[in-house]
Structure formats: structure tokens, C-alpha cells
Amino acid sequence: MGEVSIRYVGGPTAVVDICGVRLVTDPTFDAPGDYPIGTDRKLVKTAGPAVEADETGAVDAVLLSHDQHPDNLDESGRAYLARVPLVLSTPAAHGRLGDAVTALPNWETYELGERLRITGVPALHGPEGAEALAGEVTGFVLHGDAVPTVYVSGDNASLDHVRAVAERFGPVDVAVLFAGAARTPLFDGAPLTLTSEAAAEAAQILGARHVVPLHFEHWGHFSEGADTLTEAFAAAGLSERLRLLKPGATFTD
């Protein structure tokens, strides 16, 4: 079984090394500040990245959960896409960004290198029916022969989608869960990403040996963070699975 390492950059961004392949999730390298979303709303970034774009090294692909929100793809992140040979994302992202993005529909698989396969999996950015307002989002599963199985949730709030992933790929070695219970007035305060309690339940559903949370800090619209993740995993008896990284730190399995 090959080795996997995950370096936490900040927000939804991490550098993932697996079986000789380097991936970056949802590149966000902008400074703190206000970022418009639509014509009458904004998201507030409270901290910059712990790792600059130039420090990620040679990257084989970007795993982009979605392109339509600045907390998942900011201006520096858009420029970063031009530096990498492959960007996997939603069909909607391909429609907006063109040939810079390779569409990876749900349950379809892209083979990268000799061993690694990347499968697109469903994600729901909010409550049922959220797609009409929040747009299309995807998650990813990294897998292959003698390759650790890694689930990257993207901005997903649906445990039903987690169950569907577990049915096809579980148990997983590492679950990279976008948490933070993001909330905006757009959905009357319903969480747009996993709550801390739901993240712990997702870990159980997936049978994950390790859980690396992302996207739970550095933006003002998160309602839960490191403390609530620690509490939720302790309450579920899963503290030994939680790998809560400081920005810039690396988990290796």
C-alpha cells in the first residue's frame, strides 16, 4: 500500500501526495478580505494561506469541488489553474471555465498515472434542493490497486451521499471532510457543509481510519470549528481517528 500525505494550506486547500502523484484541493491563495458573491452578497476571509502557491511544488492535478464560490476558488486560485496540467471538476465548471477544466461526472473515473484512479462522487452544498441556488458541487475518491482509498468530500452537507460513497468504496483509509457548518441567509441558516456532529457520523459511515477536516476556519460564514470538531469526535468515541491539522502542518499515513 502506498503512502498518502496531506499538507493543510488553509480553508478548503490542501496538498495531497499519494503514490507519487501530487494533487491540490480547491486552490485558494488570496489574502484576507471581503469577496463578492453575486451582486448583493459577500464572503469574508479572515486568514491567508499558510502555504503560498509557489510553495506547492510540481502539481499533477487540481481537484476542484466547484468554481462558483470564492471560498473554494479565489482569484489567485483561478490563476493557479493555468499552472497545472489537469483540473478535475463538475460539468458545470467545465461549461464556465472551458478547456481549463476536465469534467468528471458522478461515478465516472479518471486514471492518473500508472496506479491512481480518481472517481467523481455526489455532493450537495446545502439542504435538499440546494442545487438550484448553490450550484453543482462534486466530491472525489482516490483509489486503485495497492493505493490508499481517500475520500475528499468537497462542500457536501448530505450524509446520504456519504452513505452512497461508503457503499461503493468503504471502508476508506482517509476521509478529507469539508466541515465548518457553513451558514448563510440564502438557506435560512441551514448548514451548507457538514456540521461537526455530521462529520463524526460520516467518519463512522465511511469506516475511516483517519479523518482530516478542511474548510472549517478562515472564513466568516463558518459556524463551527476546531473546538466543536474535537468535541463531536470525542462524543462519538472517535477521537483517535481525528487528525486536526494546524495550517501548514502535514498528516502522513
Rank of each mutant, 00 (worst) to 15 (best):
G48D: 12
G154S: 03
Y80W: 08
G126W: 00
A103K: 00
H161K: 11
G33Y: 05
L23R: 01
G135T: 12
V87A: 07
G120D: 01
A182V: 08
H125G: 00
A61S: 05
G220D: 15
E167G: 11
S89A: 05
A132I: 12
S65E: 07
L104F: 01
Y151T: 04
G237K: 08
G189F: 13
D173K: 04
E240K: 13
A203P: 07
W107D: 10
V84W: 09
H69R: 15
F233W: 10
L206N: 07
D17A: 04
L97N: 09
E108I: 07
R7D: 04
V62P: 10
L81S: 02
A235F: 08
A47E: 14
E108T: 15
D17W: 04
A103I: 05
L238R: 01
L116K: 01
G48F: 07
S196Y: 04
E231K: 13
Y80V: 06
F216G: 12
T184L: 06
L97W: 03
A14D: 03
L194N: 11
E3L: 14
L242T: 03
S76H: 15
A236M: 02
T138M: 10
R115N: 11
L116N: 06
V162R: 05
E131S: 10
L81M: 00
G38R: 09
V87C: 00
T119H: 02
F29N: 00
G113M: 08
V141L: 06
R209E: 15
K42Q: 13
F140W: 11
T109M: 01
D71R: 03
T138H: 06
A198M: 09
A179L: 08
A93C: 12
Y8D: 06
F233H: 00
L116Q: 05
L159F: 00
R117K: 15
A236C: 12
L238W: 01
D60L: 05
D34Y: 12
P105D: 01
D17R: 09
E136Q: 15
A249D: 12
A179V: 02
N72Q: 13
T90E: 03
F233G: 02
P105Y: 10
I205K: 08
V152K: 10
P247R: 12
A226S: 14
A226T: 05
T228N: 08
L104A: 05
A179W: 00
L116T: 00
D145R: 13
E128T: 15
